[in-house]
């Protein structure tokens, strides 16, 4: 029970502590590996949930459109022009956005729909339009949208257009550092 023994044990326990801190981070790749192997989170979540609400008798065409406000030096486009889906089915699509300027800027995407009434039936689970998006100077990134078309969509609607327009987020702190002149200009 002398001091040296205590110090040896102290060192061992510190190693365990540091190791477990690392283990917390190791859980991240581990988690994705498990999801991949078991097929969870791979976009067929509705299969797992045995979603009975998918209306396979109808097929809707969903078209994508992207615009950028004139004050925002960004390039923004959908990575697919259109998809075909059943009402009630969960789908994921990707948009790509690129900051062409040499400043960090925060933008906010505002969705609109054609026909307008369809907006009520597009249920977004995840969307880059939920929060402002900050892009570093020259940064380019892909952003997903996950959504379900509500089966209550009126029967005479066969094609829906989902359009986003990115605006400079006026009250964004980050924009204030670099992007403000553009917003005012």
């Amino acid at each position: 029970m002398d001091k040296a023994d205590n110090r040896i044990l102290l060192k061992k326990l510190v190693v365990v502590t540091v190791g477990m801190f690392g283990f917390g981070f190791a859980m991240v790749p581990f988690y994705y590996k498990i999801c991949e192997v078991t097929g969870i989170n791979s976009g067929d979540a509705q299969v797992l949930a045995r979603n009975t609400q998918v209306d396979t008798r109808r097929t809707i065409t969903l078209e994508f459109d992207a615009n950028v406000d004139a004050h925002l030096p960004w390039r923004f486009r959908p990575l697919q022009r259109s998809i075909r889906l059943h009402p009630g089915e969960m789908v994921q699509v990707l948009y790509e956005v690129e900051n062409l300027s040499d400043r960090d800027i925060t933008g906010q995407a505002i969705p609109s729909y054609g026909p307008q009434l369809a907006g009520r039936y597009v249920k977004k689970i995840e969307c880059f339009c939920f929060t402002g998006q900050t892009l570093k100077a020259g940064e380019k990134k892909q952003m997903p949208v996950m959504m379900v078309m509500d089966p209550a969509l009126p029967n005479d609607v066969h094609t829906v257009t989902l359009s986003y327009t990115f605006f400079v987020q006026p009250d964004s702190g980050k924009a204030a550092q670099g992007g403000r002149p553009a917003a005012n200009g």
Binding site: T17, M20, F21, M27
Partner: peptide
Amino acid sequence: ATVPVLAG
């Protein structure tokens, strides 16, 4: 074993 994981 667990508090470091919370810290992570």
